[in-house]
Design a binder for these strands. Structure first.
Lengths: 114, 114
DNA sequence: TTATTATATAACTATTCGCTTATATATACA
DNA sequence: TGTATATATAAGCGAATAGTTATATAATAA
């Protein structure tokens, strides 16, 4: 059953997290692709700790999940999270970021593991 | 025609504004009622300037509109704004705040003008 | 006119935020 | 084992945020 309501306070916390261009773009990307930290570093041109800290915040709220594959840790949107139905309509309205993945592939820096 | 996409940067700015419990609650209220500053002061128990500043931010983005009626200025969600279709699904998932209006009416502090 | 009420703006402050660099941890590989 | 690669954490710093108080502006009422 679709969740139709969410605590206002929780909603505000989630929206604040999504209210950062970097995190919002990451979420849009991770909604359709599992990505690792080094890919985000390449895409956003921020330091690796900066990317890790963004992911940490998203993970702390349960919005993303991580899966280690060898030396890499792949992050993706946690679609089993109870708030996924809240954020999905938001992500769906955002322009696709797939071209960023394509750019990685063209540069040969896309990580495809296992 | 429904707008199905929004610039990522603009979306982030809007979500950041909505990512504050006070503003988010105000937006939910104003989606169904026109409210004036003094009512919000009563509801949230913040100073009048604090409320005015929140409304100013929402107005600067075009998310709300104002209408002066005598000594009061009534604020409501601007449903003609190009981003309304972006925020509407968010507001719709939030719990109703109508009880706050009811409380004002019971206390006799609800402003109904003209 | 003068006083009152409603709202806006300015200035200030404590806290939060998002980045940085430095360092620690964990895995892969020679 | 030692070295390189990937990621996480800690500490620090400047900018942004959300509240406050003081003051200005605008409409109403006496």
């Amino acid at each position: 059953m679709l969740k139709t309501s969410i605590q206002t306070e929780k909603a505000a916390v989630i929206l604040k997290l999504l209210g950062d261009k970097t995190r919002l773009t990451m979420m849009k990307l991770m909604d359709s692709h599992a990505c690792c930290v080094c890919e985000f570093v390449e895409i956003f041109q921020f330091s690796q700790p900066s990317i890790s800290q963004h992911l940490r915040k998203l993970k702390d709220l349960g919005l993303v999940k991580e899966e280690r594959k060898g030396q890499w840790i792949f992050y993706s949107v946690n679609k089993n999270n109870e708030y996924y139905s809240f954020i999905k309509p938001i992500l769906d309205q955002l322009p696709s970021q797939d071209y960023k993945i394509n750019e990685l592939e063209e540069k040969g820096t896309r990580i495809i593991c296992c």
